[in-house]
């Protein structure tokens, strides 16, 4: 065990090329999927939180259900869609990074929507009442609402990113963990462990935990010193 940790530290410090490939694929996938989830989820979350319309409650239930989707179910769905029998087989996207991103966006967007919606539901009525009382036009009311949500948006982004780098079920099913191509940290940890290559698995595990720690430190900083 102790030896494995030593080797892990050496690997991280030596800049092992395969390790760097894994980190690069992980970064590319996680940044893309978390940013796309943010771009989709923020407007949806604000819309669901700020507007009342028939069917809103039903949409919230659907979103809450999607928030709990098991990653492997999401993986299965995208596998079927893009595999040799699926409707999108011509695109030849199975076992590529783009389809991993698609699957992750599907998993993470509901999270962004749900988090934002509950925040917006609380601030929207007073913001709207005050802003309308001042005679402000709807677009300005919307911008003021977004302005109130900047910190929640930032912290929900960090959570989305943390979820993206840590997710394994969907990514391994549609990505396949192909070395130098679709292998990300989580899938690589599984492979190395199966092969008995513990030092590499531990090295990746340490990096993952450090990233997660960093993200959560940021989130707690944000929540602690909520600068309003």
């Amino acid at each position: 065990m102790g030896k494995a940790f030593e080797q892990a530290a050496a690997l991280i410090l030596s800049g092992d090329r395969e390790l760097w490939s894994i980190l690069a694929v992980t970064a590319r996938m996680s940044l893309c999927s978390s940013l796309a989830a943010l771009a989709l989820g923020v407007p949806l979350g604000i819309w669901l939180g700020a507007c009342s319309f028939p069917g809103r409650r039903a949409l919230l239930v659907v979103n809450r259900t999607l928030m709990g989707t098991p990653p492997v179910v999401c993986g299965l769905l995208f596998y079927l869609l893009f595999s040799g029998v699926g409707p999108f087989r011509r695109l030849r996207l199975l076992f590529t990074v783009p389809v991993m991103i698609l699957a992750q966006v599907t998993l993470i967007t509901p999270l962004v929507v749900g988090n934002l919606e509950s925040y917006v539901t609380a601030v929207a009525p007073p913001v709207r009442e005050t802003a309308r009382g001042l005679g402000l036009p709807p677009w300005k009311v919307f911008l003021l609402l977004v302005n109130e949500c900047l910190y929640p948006i930032f912290s929900v982004y960090l959570l989305a990113f943390a979820r993206a780098i840590a997710e394994v079920g969907a990514v391994s099913m549609v990505g396949g963990g192909i070395a130098w191509k679709t292998n990300v940290m989580t899938t690589a940890i599984m492979q190395y462990t199966n092969r008995g290559d513990f030092s590499k698995a531990i090295a990746l595990g340490i990096i993952l935990m450090a990233l997660s720690l960093g993200v959560n430190l940021l989130v707690s900083l944000l929540q602690g010193g909520v600068r309003r």
Binding site: V127, E129, R132, E148
Partner: peptide, 13 residues
């Protein structure tokens, strides 16, 4: 044209 100040007015961030 109406201007309205609610009892609990909201301080924008």
């Amino acid at each position: 044209t109406v201007g309205y100040l609610p009892q609990r007015s909201f301080p924008f961030r």
